[in-house]
Design a protein around this nucleic acid. Structure first.
Length: 636
RNA sequence: GCCGUUGUGGCUCAGGGGUAGAGCAGCUCACUCGUAAUGAGCAGGUCGUCGGUUCGAUUCCGACCAACGGCUCCA
């Protein structure tokens, strides 16, 4: 019999009989590997274990430990779920069911939406089908045959998919009585799906288009083993515990009220203090980097919004009001007053770059279904700036913004990722504008030395942009900072500067935020720190607690002294046991509890207890002031 | 905006066609206490809003509002 030669990742080679599969290769290496194998990679291409090898292939065995394993397991789990649904609800039409970052989902077209009870039944069925050890087999068909096959099965979505694929041949994976159009690869058997859980039901549009029919989506997750599944489910629980809406209420930071209106947070004293600290920080950091602080009005004449194009493109999201027969638009963005400040005088190239910074509060009428705590609101404050510069300066300005973002994220301890979005199909501006701006963004990204991704065609119609997504301690990503180049506004408002040669030229405008919105950023901070904010941003940094009533006069003195020194201190001189007061301060996540008993009164000291339970040595109140001041200066 | 779920005192939740309960929080009193809950008593709700069915609705039905999980959109 003829043999073929296969090269392994370590560059060693093996001889196998012609027609051997990936599995045969694994088996020839070792029984253990054959058992652990779940798929293969032939010349870099993921394939099933049953795939045939040809001479001179480079082959890698994918096991549960491989990075690709999870995706395959989840994809197979989604097929298993579809099979379970079809068995329990034969009238359900299957559509698509991919693996996603946190698990998998499958969309079904059903007359009656699934209920939580259904979810349990489906999961139970899946367990049964998994343990049945059904072989998962791949078959290839011509598209024509596949279409008539799925037609016969009464699966119109599948035939639509095949038609749209526009290819000659498609692959179909089957297990038991269930068959699904799929590229693969998959596990060799359903028994290999060992740890999964269905999580939730949701509506989702067919092909993500809201004009299409709404399908019923079931989300689930799957892992290589039960232990990892448990770990993930625990992480979900932890996220629930850290939910900023819950902690926001517990720490009395903010609230929402039906009477005020959906999406309009009201900031309680402690939340407002937290904001104030962040805003002061921002002003300081912007001034350091040669930004000018500006302030514009909350409402501007509607004519101005017409000129900017917002009226045409953004009207649904805007609030309007009319006074003295004059229509005004409540600003959804801060750019217009910044434009007008630029235009208030003749600008020379010597004036540029101009960097206008505003903690601008904007109102946007977001669709009702998208509101989410502080993460998505209808009234929020952006740390917004518009940089107006010459084309030659663009490069340095973008780099400056990225290094600004980098500095700020380091202070808060966030990791982040960057994405460049390039020219979309519908866009304005010349080719050279786009080339230059995209080039500037790209070069700044390369310069940053950090990994970045490119989203082809995902930019705004008015210019390319960099989105920055920070990662919190649970590895979730949040869009906060963005840097956008804008060709429209300078054009529409006819912004110019006088160039060295005396010619009028058009400046380039960069729109950027660092934290994004104060609201969202605070939401992220709350979840990241689970409410235990670093000392420098804690709304309450310390609380003076007395052991008994006899220490009250001294405690009042200490409180006054710290307040006067600018420490955000509270006092708890209630007639309660110390342990009770400690507990309350602990639940409020106050960094320092300054315990005052007879000993402290005698010595004129306080004994700070940190919220981790450890005491600092007793110290004079002024020493504590120095300590906190120093820590805050270092952004601790 | 769309699909689904939910809406009972400040918070967490129980209950259910005959106008409502618990714990915590609050208030009062006693205890004067050294690092995560001292005890006792008191008070607090037109059961999201508006309609309908009914002798009678907080409970059943409908509409609206809001929240929650998603979709779409986004800082």
């Amino acid at each position: 019999m003829a043999t073929i030669s296969i090269t392994l990742p370590d560059n060693s080679s093996r001889e196998l009989n012609e027609g051997a599969s990936v599995y045969d290769l694994a088996a020839s290496i070792g029984a253990g590997l054959a058992k652990a194998a779940i798929a293969g990679k032939i010349n870099g291409q993921l394939v099933d274990l049953s795939s045939r090898l040809t001479d001179a292939d480079r082959v890698e065995i994918v096991t549960e430990k491989s990075p690709e394993a999870l995706e395959i397991i989840r994809h197979s789990a989604s097929h298993l779920m579809a099979q379970a649904v079809k068995e329990l609800f034969p009238q359900a039409k299957v559509t698509i069911g991919p693996a996603i970052e946190t698990g998998f989902y499958y969309d079904f077209d059903v007359d009656k939406p699934f209920t939580p009870d259904d979810l349990e039944r489906i999961e139970a069925k899946m367990l049964l089908l998994a343990s049945a050890d059904q072989k998962i087999e791949r078959h290839e068909y011509s598209s024509v045959d596949a279409i008539s096959m799925f037609e016969a099965m009464g699966e119109p979505y599948k035939t639509e998919l095949i038609t749209d694929l526009g290819v000659e041949r498609v692959s179909v994976y089957s297990q038991g009585t269930f068959a699904d159009l799929c590229r693969g690869p998959h596990l060799p058997s359903t028994a290999r799906i060992k740890a999964f859980k269905l999580l939730s039901i949701a509506g989702a549009y067919w092909r993500g288009n809201e004009k299409n029919r709404m399908l019923q989506r079931i989300y689930g997750t799957a892992f290589v083993d039960k232990k990892e599944l448990e770990a993930y489910l625990n992480r979900l629980e932890e996220a629930k515990r850290r939910d900023h809406r819950k902690i926001g209420r517990e720490l009395d930071l903010f609230s929402f009220s039906d009477e005020v209106g959906a999406g309009f947070p009201i900031w309680h004293p402690k939340g407002a203090m937290l904001r104030t600290v962040l805003e002061d920080f921002e002003r300081k950091e912007h001034l350091k980097r040669d930004y000018d602080i500006v302030v514009g009005p909350q409402i501007l004449k509607s004519e101005l919004w017409q000129r900017s194009g917002h009226y045409e493109n953004y009207r649904e999201n805007m609030y309007f009001t009319e006074v003295d027969e004059q229509s005004y638009g409540i600003k959804p963005m801060n750019c217009l007053s910044h434009m007008m400040i630029y235009k208030s005088q003749l600008r020379s190239y010597r004036d540029l770059p101009l960097r206008f910074f505003e903690l601008g509060t904007v109102h946007r009428h977001e669709r009702a279904g998208v509101l989410h705590g502080l993460m998505r609101v209808r009234c929020f404050t952006q740390d917004d700036a518009h940089i107006l510069c010459t084309p030659e300066q663009l490069d340095a300005e973008i780099k400056g913004v990225i290094s600004f973002v980098n500095d700020v994220m380091a202070i808060f301890g966030f990791e982040y990722e960057m994405e460049l979005s390039t020219r979309p199909e519908k866009s304005i501006g010349s080719d050279s504008d786009w080339e230059q701006a995209t080039g500037a963004l790209l070069s700044a990204l390369k310069d940053s030395g950090r990994p970045y991704e490119i989203n082809e065609g995902d930019g705004a119609f008015y210019g390319p942009k960099i989105d920055i997504k920070l990662r919190d301690c649970l590895d979730r990503r949040w869009q906060c900072a963005t840097i956008q180049c804008d060709f429209t506004l300078p054009e529409r408002f006819d912004l110019t500067y006088v160039a060295p040669d005396g010619e009028r030229k058009r400046p380039i405008m960069v729109h950027r935020v660092i934290l994004g919105s104060i609201e969202r950023f605070i939401g992220v901070l709350i979840e990241h720190f689970a409410g235990s904010f670093p000392l420098w941003i804690s709304p309450v940094q310390a609380v003076v607690v007395t052991v008994t009533d006899s220490q009250i006069p001294y405690a009042q003195d200490v409180y006054r002294q710290l307040r006067n020194a600018g420490i955000r201190v509270e006092r708890d001189v209630r007639n309660e046991k110390l342990s009770f007061k400690i507990r309350e301060a602990q639940l409020q996540k106050i960094p320092y509890m300054l315990v005052i008993g007879d000993k402290e009164v005698e010595q004129g000291t306080v004994t700070p207890r940190y919220r981790d339970g450890k005491n600092l040595p007793a110290m004079k109140p002024e020493e504590f002031v120095d300590f906190v001041t120093k820590e805050c200066k270092d952004y601790k």
